[in-house]
Each structure stands twice: as structure tokens, then as C-alpha cells.
Amino acid sequence: MGFHTFPIDRADALRDASRYRYCSREELLEGLPTDGDVTVADLGSGTGFYTDDVAPYVGRCYAVDVQEAMHERYREEGVPSTVELVTAAVDSLPFADDELDGAFSTMTHHEYASEAAFAELARVIRPGGRLVTVDWSADGDGEDGPSVDERFSAETAVDQLESAGFSIQSARERPETFHLIARR
């Protein structure tokens, strides 16, 4: 596994509604706190495809991406008023301890997976807060997404999160992806 980013010249693919076959808006929202004035973060937000789905249900949604160019593309689409763009890596988030009620990651876990990133998530997500992770599975066939050797299995992702102090509330494997809901 190694750090990489999604190519900006392919950013239009991140706005493709066919992505919902891997993670629907409803499936994402089911695991997140969406009641009242909660604060969540989209980890690896890209051009804001899933950020836009979550933003109407929370008080504040941080769109976190390491590439400022992705934020520029998101601005072109129009950023909702409840969204704040944050250029940062997951292993060095500019949030206070326990600031987030929740966070979510769609198809980016494999890009930031490290002990430092998981420790940082445990630092910024408040006790009882939730983390929803949907990513490409090492058990998939690799027809879509990154090559299989860049992916983690659901079992490995569970182990990574548990080692960082999260408890797994739900773990589902699908043909090409996995879906985890963890609580800090």
C-alpha cells in the first residue's frame, strides 16, 4: 500500500452518479449522526459528490482533501453553505480534540490507511462519535477502482480501526467493496 491521490485530470469521474452502486446516499447517512447541529468530516472529499449528500443533514460538514485542486473543482460546482473546505491529510487534521461528531470515507480508506491517520481520527472524533468507511475490497475482482494489491480487506480494516480504539458496529462485505460503521 502506498500514498497516492486521485488524478485531477479524471476529477469529472468523481461526480458520476453511477458511484451510487457502490455506496448510496442512504447507506452513508444510516451510519452518521444527522440529528441537529452535528459536525462531520468527509475524508478525501474530492469534488464533493458525497459531501453534497450529507451536508443538508448536518450543522457543519468539513470537506477534507489533500489536493487544493479538488477544492477548486468543488467550488466550480457550488459548495453548500454548511460545508467548509479543508486542505489537509487525514494524519494531520486541523481539528480540536473531540471536535467531530462523525466522519466518513468513501473509496479513500486505502489512500490514507496508516497508524498515524487512525490515531488522528481517534483524536478528533468525540467519544461515542461514528466513523463510516466504504472502500474497495481486497476481496473484489478489481474491475473498478484501484488494483486489488492497493486495497484492504474488510477484516484488515476492522483490525486497523479496532487497534485505534474504535468499536465496530457493523461490517458488511459486498462484491467489490466493504461498508463499516465504527464508534469511538
Rank of each mutant, 00 (worst) to 15 (best):
P80G: 07
L121Y: 03
E115V: 12
D53T: 12
D12S: 15
F152M: 13
R151E: 04
G48A: 06
E111Q: 13
D53R: 12
G36D: 11
D98A: 14
L28P: 07
V79A: 03
G44K: 02
F95C: 07
G165M: 06
G59N: 04
C61R: 00
T156P: 03
A116I: 06
S147L: 10
E173F: 08
G145S: 08
E176H: 09
V58D: 00
G142V: 10
R60M: 07
R73E: 10
E162L: 03
A89S: 13
S137D: 12
A103Q: 02
G2H: 06
D141A: 08
D144A: 12
H179L: 15
T106Y: 05
A103K: 03
L43I: 01
Y57L: 09
R184I: 01
L161Y: 02
V64N: 03
V134N: 02
V79D: 11
L93A: 06
T34E: 09
G145L: 01
A11D: 09
A116W: 05
A96Q: 15
R174V: 04
Y74S: 03
R25P: 12
H71K: 00
D35Q: 15
L161H: 05
F166L: 00
E77C: 10
C23Q: 11
E68N: 10
T82D: 06
I168N: 07
Y20Q: 13
L93K: 09
D98Q: 12
G59Y: 06
A88R: 09
D149S: 13
P7W: 08
G2W: 04
L28F: 08
E26T: 14
L43Y: 07
P127K: 08
V79N: 06
R126M: 08
V54L: 07
S105Q: 07
A138T: 00
V158W: 00
R10D: 14
E77F: 11
R130N: 11
L28Q: 11
A119L: 08
Y74K: 04
D65F: 08
L85W: 01
A182K: 02
A122M: 05
V38I: 13
A122Q: 12
F166Q: 00
C61W: 02
L14D: 01
G145W: 00
R174C: 10
E30P: 07
L161C: 01
D65C: 07
A116M: 10
A89V: 12
R172H: 14
R172E: 15
I181R: 09
D53K: 13
H110C: 05
P80K: 07
T5E: 14
G59S: 08
T106F: 08
L85P: 05
E120A: 09
T87W: 03
V90Y: 01
L85Y: 07
A89R: 14
A138Q: 11
T47A: 08
T51G: 03
H71P: 06
D16H: 10
A182T: 06
H4G: 14
G46V: 03
S170P: 04
